[in-house]
Design a protein around this nucleic acid. Structure first.
Lengths: 332, 332
DNA sequence: CTGAAAGCGCTTACAG
DNA sequence: CTGAAAGCGCTTACAG
C-alpha cells in the first residue's frame, strides 16, 4: 500500500548527491561530511522521506520481526509478559509479531517461525514440538520445551511451590491440598513436585486424595472445588495451594457459594499474582511472578543472541509470596 | 538471519525451468502446465524451498503486516479481541503486529503506522490523534477516534448502559449510581449518557452525587467504593452500574471488606463480561461484549478494505445483559 | 569523503 | 505455456 512515497533516489536528487551517500548519511552519519549530512537532512525533510523497511530488510537479509508464541492470547497472564517484551523490542527497532499457539494450526506456527518472517523467537508455550523451533535464535520464557537447548528465562517453580506450602504449614495446616496445572506441562510438574517435596520436608503427607487435577483455567478451579466439597469434612485439606490464580478464583467462587468461608474454613494460596486477585474478597494470598520483567529479560536475551552474543545459561527470576487475606490458621 | 536458504533460482535449476516459471507454479499454478507444476513441486520438496517474504513484499509493494494499536496490552479486555483479530489475519497471510499505545511513545506509534511496516491498522484506542492514522487503511474497533472517518466495529454503548439501568430499575432501585470510565474517552461518554438518559426515562434522577469518577482500572473501582462508603447511608445509591468489570471487581472487593453484602445491601452491574467475573463471589451481573467477534469482524473489514472494497459504515454488534448474583431488589 | 555498480530474492509485463 | 529482462528500494564492497 505504498503510494507515491519518496524513495531514497528522490532525496539524493534534491540533495545533489548519490543514493549511496544518502543511505550513509541516514544510517551512519559519521561517514559523511557535515555539509552533506545537512543537505541530506534537509532533503529528507522536504520530501518527507521515510525508509522502506521491506527493501532494507531484503538487503540486510533480516526481517526486523520477533515472534512471540503464546499459549492463549486471551489469557491475562501473558499480556503483561508481552507488554514487557514489546517495551524492549520497540526501541531496538524490532516488530513484535504475536501468534497464538492455541488458535493457530501447527503449520501456521511453523510458518511464523520461518527465517524470512522473523529473526528470532520467544516461546512461551512449553508444549510445542522442539523440532520446528530450531530454525532461528530462540529464547524460552516461563515455560520451556524439554530437549530444546536455548536460554531460558524462568522462575524456580519448585521453590515457589515450597514457599506456598511452608506458609500454610507455618500457619498450622497439616493437610495441604494441591490443584495441579495441565498434564504434561513443565510448570505443572515443577509446582507439583515442589508441593510434594515441601510437604514431606515438613513431615506432612502429600496424599493422592489431596491432589486435584486442573488446567490453569477458571473452570478447572471450580471443578476442583466440587471435588473438595464432596470429600468428607474431617479428611479433606484445610488449605489448598493452586497452580494458578485463575484456578484459585474459580475454586474460591465455588466454595464460597456453598457457604464455606475463606480463610476461616479453608485457606487458599494461588500462583501468578494476576492483577485482579488483590481486589477480590478475600484478597488472594499468592506467589508473584515478575511478569513484566520476565518479558523484558527474554527480549533482551534474544536481542543479545541476534547480535551474536551466545549464552545458553538460564535466568532465574525471584518470586515473592504475597500475603493477603485468603490464608489463616486452621480452625480448632 | 537467513542462512543458506534455497532461493527460487535453486528450485528453477533443479526443475529445469526458469525462475519466472517457478514463481508462477507457486503463486498461480493454473498458469503452468501440469508437468511443469509437478517438476517444480518436486524441486521445492527436494530443496526445502520456502519463500522469502521480504523479497516478495518488496516486489508487491506491500508488507504483509497489520498493526493493532492497543491501549494497554496488559489489559485482559483486549487479549480476546486480539485473539479474534489474529484468528482471521493468520489464514489470510497477514502478520499481526501489536503495539501498546500506553507504553510506546507517540513517535514509535507513528512509526508503526507507516506504510512500509504495515498495510493496515486496527485501532483500539480512541484517544489517539486522528492525524497520524490516515496514512493507510484503518478500522476502528470498540473505541473510535472522533473525526477519523473509517469503518467502526462497535457496540451500542448507550443502549448497553440503558440495559443495565433498566435491569436495576426493574428490581425496584430508585437511586442508581454510575462509576464512569476515564474522562475524554468516547466509551465513557456514551455509557454515562446511557445511564443518564435511562434514569430519566424511568423517572429517576441521575444526581451528580450518584456519579463517581473512574478510569476502567481496578484501583479506580476501589476508590469509587470508598466514596460510596463515605456517603450517608440513606442517600447513597442502592445499586451501582460501573463502566467496566475491572472497576466492579475493585468496587465489590472494597465494600465487602467493609461488611457490605452484595447483593443484599448493594446491587452491582459491571461492563464487558471478562471471563473472571463469572467466578468471583458473588458472580457479577454484567453487560457482555462479543470481544472475540469484535476482533474478527474488525480484521475482516480491514481485509476487505485492503482488497479495495471500501465501505465506511459502522458495524454494531449486539450486547447481552448477563444476569448473575450481584443484583437483587433493594432492602426494605 | 563520495559515486557507480552490483545485488538482496522475488514478480510480472512483454515477447515468443 | 515459457523465458529473458527489468525492477521493487535499499546497502555496501570497491575504487577513486
Amino acid at each position: 500500500m505504498m503510494h507515491q512515497r519518496p524513495r531514497i533516489s528522490d532525496v539524493a536528487r534534491l540533495a545533489g548527491v548519490s543514493t549511496a551517500t544518502v543511505s550513509r548519511a541516514l544510517s551512519n552519519p559519521a561517514l559523511v561530511s557535515e555539509e552533506t549530512r545537512a543537505a541530506v537532512d534537509q532533503a529528507v525533510q522536504a520530501t518527507g522521506y521515510r525508509i522502506n523497511h521491506a527493501a532494507r530488510n531484503l538487503r540486510h537479509r533480516r526481517t526486523g520481526g520477533i515472534v512471540a508464541l503464546v499459549p492463549g492470547l486471551a489469557n491475562p497472564f501473558f499480556s503483561q509478559i508481552l507488554s514487557g517484551i514489546a517495551s524492549v523490542l520497540a526501541p531496538a527497532g524490532y516488530n513484535l509479531l504475536v501468534a497464538d499457539t492455541r488458535s493457530a494450526g501447527a503449520d501456521t506456527l511453523l510458518s511464523y517461525a520461518e527465517p524470512s518472517r522473523a529473526d528470532g523467537l520467544i516461546v512461551l508455550d512449553g508444549t510445542l514440538p522442539a523440532a520446528g523451533l530450531t530454525r532461528m535464535p530462540v529464547v524460552l520464557a516461563c515455560e520451556w520445551v524439554p530437549g530444546l537447548i536455548a536460554p531460558r528465562v524462568k522462575i524456580d517453580n519448585r521453590e515457589a511451590a515450597a514457599m506456598a506450602v511452608n506458609h500454610l504449614a507455618d500457619l498450622g495446616h497439616r493437610r495441604i491440598g494441591h490443584v495441579a496445572g495441565p498434564p504434561g506441562n513443565v510448570l505443572t510438574e515443577a509446582r507439583q513436585a515442589g508441593w510434594q517435596e515441601a510437604c514431606i520436608a515438613r513431615g506432612l503427607t502429600p496424599d493422592p486424595a489431596l491432589l486435584y487435577p486442573g488446567d490453569f483455567g477458571l473452570d478447572s478451579g471450580q471443578r476442583a472445588a466440587r471435588l473438595w466439597l464432596d470429600q468428607p469434612k474431617d479428611s479433606r485439606p484445610t488449605a489448598v495451594f493452586l497452580a494458578s490464580d485463575e484456578m484459585a478464583c474459580g475454586f474460591i467462587g465455588e466454595v464460597v457459594r456453598h457457604g464455606i468461608r475463606v480463610p476461616q474454613d479453608l485457606s487458599v494460596v494461588g500462583f501468578d499474582d494476576i492483577e485482579l486477585v488483590a481486589h477480590i474478597a478475600p484478597p488472594l494470598t499468592t506467589i508473584r511472578q515478575p511478569r513484566n520483567q520476565l518479558g523484558r529479560i527474554a527480549a533482551e536475551r534474544l536481542l543479545a543472541r541476534l547480535e551474536g552474543r551466545v549464552d545458553d545459561t538460564d535466568t532465574v527470576l525471584p518470586v515473592e509470596l504475597v500475603l493477603r487475606g485468603s490464608t489463616a490458621p486452621p480452625r480448632g
